[in-house]
């Protein structure tokens, strides 16, 4: 990156490090932090939506819908995350290819399952083998995000279901007494008030989600853990910047990164709690009210 980086072997330590930390491989490492942020930014709202749907379904008066909602939360909560990740990615991937195979090549004579292999016709390959590498990477990442959303959606569903039950029942009855329909009571009275009860649980799930981001590495995505291991490993003179085993320092950097992320999240969650407590019949809401008068 810098002009003096042409011959790293002759540099003093300060310049050596400034060149080393700005080489192409390190830029890929820095970019992989964006993968983590992208995962958080997409997964959080999608899981919340899944959770909201699951919680609403669980409260439904139509029995099969309620069962569906409860089954989803119970099933995902009961299966270890890692099993779900490894299993679901495979199911999604093969499911998509199987469906496309049925549509694109109905005359295909060969078996799809041949021993350990899953072979569909070339038209059904997802993504197409002619697609550039970034399409393959985006596809793999999307599958991962979707799986994260399903798993964390179930946790959110459970928290939101509890929060909905925590809203004082008298308020809902009052709504009904004013002639509101069931849907109006749900959207105008229940949903706006439930968030303050859901927030401690959702905050926990958010922190667990942050901690679960390194699982991307297990799914074969080149995330920060992949690059920390790759760059930290000992390097001989095949490389321009040889160094001994530095994995300790790279993983230490990841540790600091995750601690900072947790601290920032805590500050954000505290602010959100203050904001949502206004006018609520909770201890925090009461304190706010007293401070104002």
């Amino acid at each position: 990156m810098f002009a003096f980086c042409t011959d790293p072997a002759t540099l003093d330590p300060l310049r050596w490090f400034s060149c080393y930390l700005t080489n192409g491989a390190h830029f890929l490492f820095y970019q992989s932090f964006l993968v983590v942020f992208a995962l958080l930014a997409v997964t959080a709202p999608v899981s919340l939506a899944f959770g909201f749907a699951a919680a609403s379904a669980s409260r439904s008066h139509i029995l099969p819908v309620a069962w569906l909602g409860k089954l989803y939360t119970a099933m995902v909560r009961g299966v270890p995350d890692i099993v779900f990740f490894l299993f679901f990615i495979l199911v999604l991937d093969q499911g998509i290819e199987y469906l496309r195979h049925q549509i694109a090549c109905p005359e295909w004579a060969e078996e799809i399952r041949q021993g350990a292999n899953f072979l569909v016709c070339p038209e059904a390959r997802t993504p197409s083998s002619n697609a550039p590498q970034w399409v393959h990477e985006v596809y793999g990442f999307s599958l991962a995000v979707f799986t994260y959303a399903i798993v964390f959606g179930a946790f959110c569903g459970n928290v939101l279901y509890g929060a909905m039950r925590a809203v004082p029942h008298a308020q809902l009855e009052t709504g009904a007494a004013y002639g509101m329909s069931r849907a109006q009571v749900f959207w105008r009275i229940l949903v706006p008030q439930m968030w303050i009860y859901a927030l401690p649980g959702l905050g926990n799930i958010w922190l667990i989600l942050i901690k679960a981001t390194p699982l991307l590495f297990l799914l074969g995505i080149e995330d920060i853990v992949y690059w920390a291991r790759e760059l930290g490993g000992s390097r001989n003179s095949v490389y321009q910047y040889p160094h001994p085993d530095w994995r300790f320092w790279y993983f230490l950097a990841l540790l600091v990164f995750y601690l900072c992320l947790t601290r920032v999240s805590e500050i954000g969650l505290a602010r959100l709690t203050g904001h949502l407590s206004r006018g609520q019949a909770t201890a925090a809401g009461d304190t706010l009210r007293k401070a104002a008068t």
Binding site: N23, G24, A25, H26, S129, V238, Y239
Partner: peptide, 25 residues
């Protein structure tokens, strides 16, 4: 396919000097 078909070459990228990820990434 042969006209513009892309052959995807799989490698490990961690076994110098056979294959590795260099300093340029």
């Amino acid at each position: 396919a042969s006209a513009q078909d892309v052959v995807r070459m799989g490698t490990e990228g961690a076994y110098p000097p056979y294959n590795f990820i260099n300093d340029q990434g």
